[in-house]
């Protein structure tokens, strides 16, 4: 029974919403909005449960005098300050976000800078993550590395000119690497690596002589990479994703998959 009822409810509502997509007639057009309103109401009540869980979790930590209990204390104090300040702002100004409300000051001068700080850390993390990830381990990762460098430089003024020395050094190093590694192989594997070595070395040397041309070429190449290979790849993932989500939804609607319920 405990699993039967949710599966039946899911089935009926799933089929209904699917059918609604095709029926342009009143009152069916309203049902989708109605259900999303129900969802908002239910999640409103659930928010109370969430707050209950948050406060209890940290209250327990304080009571146990955990080593990090001081953070929990800060959290609880800030929580109640924000809560009561907000309630007071309703009373005093008619709403916390009215233009002269003091709660708005709290929001603008404490919350917003904190929010912006968290996001700006991302820039540092991107640097350390790309330093680690962009390694010329094999042909594919070398291609990824080169296209990443082109896109990065295509996105800034002077990018083309800055890019040239990097490209030159990388091509010479990578070319010598393949030249060296090719001696350890025989047959096709060796020929393939010799080919790569010559390709990389000649690209490097070519850049040295035609740097002017390439530096003008980089921004448009960067745009081309973004618009075509990148968009094509994204579209392919999105297509697979959509098919996957239809199949997944059908599995849920027809009760084939019950991993999310008891």
């Amino acid at each position: 029974m405990q699993t039967q009822i949710p599966v039946i409810v899911t089935f009926i509502s799933g089929i209904l919403i699917m059918a609604l997509f095709f029926i342009p007639r009143e009152p069916f057009t309203q049902i989708e909005q109605l259900t999303s309103r129900w969802y908002i109401i239910i999640s409103g009540f659930a928010l109370l449960l969430g707050i209950d869980s948050l406060i209890l979790y940290h209250w327990r930590k304080i009571k146990r005098r955990d080593k990090d209990a001081v953070y929990s204390l800060i959290l609880i104090i800030s929580f109640f300050i924000a809560l009561f300040w907000g309630i007071w702002a309703w009373y005093a100004y008619g709403g916390p976000f009215i233009s002269n409300s003091s709660y708005l000051w709290l929001f603008q001068n404490i919350y917003l800078p904190l929010d912006a700080t968290m996001f700006s850390i991302l820039g540092f993390f991107i640097a350390s993550a790309s330093y680690r990830a962009f390694r010329a381990r094999n042909l594919e990762s070398s291609l990824l590395l080169i296209s990443a460098a082109i896109v990065m430089m295509g996105r800034v003024p002077f990018g083309g000119s800055i890019f040239i020395p990097f490209f030159f050094v990388f091509m010479i190093v990578a070319g010598s690497y393949f030249l060296y590694i090719a001696t350890k192989y025989t047959g096709f594997n060796a020929i393939f690596r010799y080919f790569l070595a010559i390709l990389f070395l000649s690209l490097g040397i070519g850049v040295f002589f035609y740097s002017e041309l390439l530096s003008q070429f980089i921004p448009s190449l960067s745009n081309w990479i973004m618009q075509y290979p990148n968009t094509a790849g994204q579209r392919a993932i999105i297509l697979g994703l959509t098919l996957g989500s239809i199949a997944f939804s059908l599995r849920i609607i027809f009760g084939i998959e019950r991993g999310y319920i008891r």
Partner: peptide
């Protein structure tokens, strides 16, 4: 770039099956 393994798109949907 930051994870050891990544399920791409539909693999996540297929995971429970």
């Amino acid at each position: 770039v930051s994870c050891d393994y990544t399920l791409i798109g539909e693999e996540l949907y297929a995971a429970s099956a």
